[in-house]
Amino acid sequence: MFISQAMAAEEAAKSGGAFPPFDPTYFGSQLLWLAITFGVFYMIMGRVIIPRLSGILEDRHDRISRDLDEAQRLSAEADAAEAAYEHELAKAKSNAHSIAQEATDKAKAEAAETREKIESQLADQMAEAEQRISAIKEKALGEVDTIAADTAETIVAELIGAKTTKAEITKAVSAVNS
């Protein structure tokens, strides 16, 4: 109610009483000043601000795409280096493998050779020993007859007191033996 009173008073006080936004008194002034100010504004924006801003944004865009290209190039380089490294590694691995294989083979061959040598040595020694054993055995067996004859001679002499010839005894022993 305060407001409506004030409004009424205001309206009554003014001669025209027009609602200010619709009051045509200053239409000309407003149009003129709008044309001047907006015109100047349009010129400043169009001539200075917009070229400047689009320049800034374009520069940044170029810079970013350039940096991206550079990053891509570096990344490709890194990939190539990694591939080369992998290749080298694989080569080194296969090298190492073949060296190890070679060493194993060599060691195996040496071991086999040594074994063979030792085995043949042992076989020789065994054959020699066998020979010696059989010689000793033969010799011992040969001596058995003589011992037997001696013993027989002594026994006969003791038992019958008769002297027997060596030839008889031997004959008898061999007869028993055979």
């Binding site: 200053y26 000309g28 407003q30 000043w33 100010t37 907006f38």
Partner: peptide, 12 residues
């Protein structure tokens, strides 16, 4: 009337 008014001032 092309007076410089408060409207003109705020446009400027």
């Amino acid at each position: 009337d092309i007076s410089f008014t408060n409207s003109s001032l705020f446009m400027v």
